[in-house]
């Protein structure tokens, strides 16, 4: 029997809704998803389909209204805000469309920040590790620059470096190339894949690009807050195939 890799992310009957002026609005419902270590999965879907909400739930930024989420075997629902924050800083790395670098820190300081926050390294040691990470993303010569002094692609590279410096189990990426031109986006995407492979992290990526999605292990399709059954094609033209990965099998 082949060895089953440990699951990094597990969602069971996951649901999320918010209460607005018109009452409760369901954003996600009945989402089942399992991601194993090292797997790279794309989530595709139309705008407003709930893709980003799924990432927020996985990151512990929102609390599920139904079902459960486990990250690295830890159930998020039972955790307080402090515990979720600690889990986020240790086991997760986030890469978002808008880069979300700290504008008052240099590239080097941005990459070193997660190490300091988690207490894994301080001062010179943190800087050394950050410097090495910047070199891996090809920005060793830009360590002292502030984000506004970097191009969009460079900023996203720094964000990738920051997301992976502490070797997290899971990378969450929400349209990482959305703000970049195609050439720059391609370069950033390849870098992301290389770094994920180097650290053995799992990757859950939201994307509108069929080309990018096709280069990952699997693509899942979200329609109106639900993950389409595996193999079912969405009725919206231009979207890509979907499926679930359970217990390491399609």
């Amino acid at each position: 029997m082949p060895q089953i890799p440990p699951s990094v992310l597990e969602c069971r009957a996951l649901g999320f809704s918010y209460r607005g002026a018109a009452g409760a609005t369901a954003v996600l419902s009945g989402v089942d998803l399992t991601l194993l270590a090292g797997q790279r999965v794309a989530i595709a879907g139309a705008s407003g389909s709930g893709k980003s909400t799924l990432l927020h739930l996985a990151a512990g930024l929102e609390t599920a209204s139904a079902g459960r989420v486990r990250v690295n075997g830890v159930e998020l629902g039972g955790l307080g805000e402090r515990e979720r924050t600690i889990l986020r800083r240790r086991d997760l790395g986030v890469v978002f469309q808008a880069f979300h670098l700290i504008p008052t820190l240099t590239a080097l300081e941005n990459v070193a920040l997660p190490l300091e926050l988690d207490g894994r390294a301080w001062g010179a040691q943190a800087r050394e590790r950050a410097r090495a990470q910047l070199a891996r993303v090809g920005l060793a010569d830009k360590a002292g620059r502030y984000p506004e002094q970097l191009s969009g692609g460079e900023q996203q590279r720094v964000a990738i470096g920051r997301a992976l410096v502490h070797e997290p189990a899971l990378i969450l990426a929400d349209e990482p190339t959305g703000n970049l031109d195609s050439a720059t986006g391609e370069g950033v995407f390849r870098l992301l894949l290389d770094q994920v492979a180097a650290t053995g992290s799992a990757l859950l990526m939201v994307t509108h690009s069929p080309a990018l999605a096709a280069r990952l292990d699997r693509t899942l399709h979200m329609v109106d807050g639900r993950l389409m059954p595996e193999g079912a094609l969405p009725t919206v033209p231009g979207t890509i195939g979907s499926g679930t990965i359970e217990n390491g099998r399609e």
Binding site: I86, R89, V94, H100, L101, I102, T104, L113, D118
Partner: peptide
């Protein structure tokens, strides 16, 4: 608030 958002994303606690 953008800085705050980014900090919270990468694991800065409320405290």
């Amino acid at each position: 608030r953008e800085i705050l958002s980014s900090l919270r994303l990468i694991g800065v606690s409320r405290g």
